[in-house]
């Protein structure tokens, strides 16, 4: 099956258009799917939040949870390290030392 050069250009443009069309269609479907999943998750959360004040009353009578150590809950600046790796290192250090993670203060983590 021999085809002419103009036909070749026609097929090429059409071929690229088909690929784009198909993947754009998929993109729209995936975006719609993502939005639907997000809405469902939000709808599930809403009733839980509405019931929250009722659940807080008995919680107040429960023994007080140990206060976070000073220095925690600050901003964690990660440089040249993935959050997952940093979290892993901090969890291992806490486990090895036998000290809860919220009582440890990490100033820096350096590769030896």
């Amino acid at each position: 099956m021999n085809i002419s050069i103009p036909e070749t250009f026609g097929y090429s443009v059409l071929g690229m258009a088909v690929v784009f069309l198909m993947l754009i269609l998929l993109m729209v479907i995936i975006i719609a799917m993502g939005k639907s999943a997000k809405n469902k998750a939000a709808a599930k959360k809403a009733p839980v939040q509405a019931q929250a004040p009722v659940q807080q009353a008995p919680a107040a009578q429960a023994p007080a949870v140990s206060k976070p150590a000073p220095g925690t809950c600050g901003t964690l600046n990660l440089r040249a390290v993935e959050p997952r790796t940093a979290a892993l290192i901090m969890a291992i250090v806490a486990d090895e030392m036998g000290v809860p993670l919220n009582e440890l203060r990490f100033i820096s983590i350096k590769k030896i």
Partner: peptide, 18 residues
């Protein structure tokens, strides 16, 4: 999902070589 567009654009070589 926008990365699908990049996957489509990277088929350009198929038609250029064709």
């Amino acid at each position: 999902p926008k990365s699908l567009l990049l996957g489509a654009a990277a088929q350009l070589g198929i038609y250029c070589a064709f």
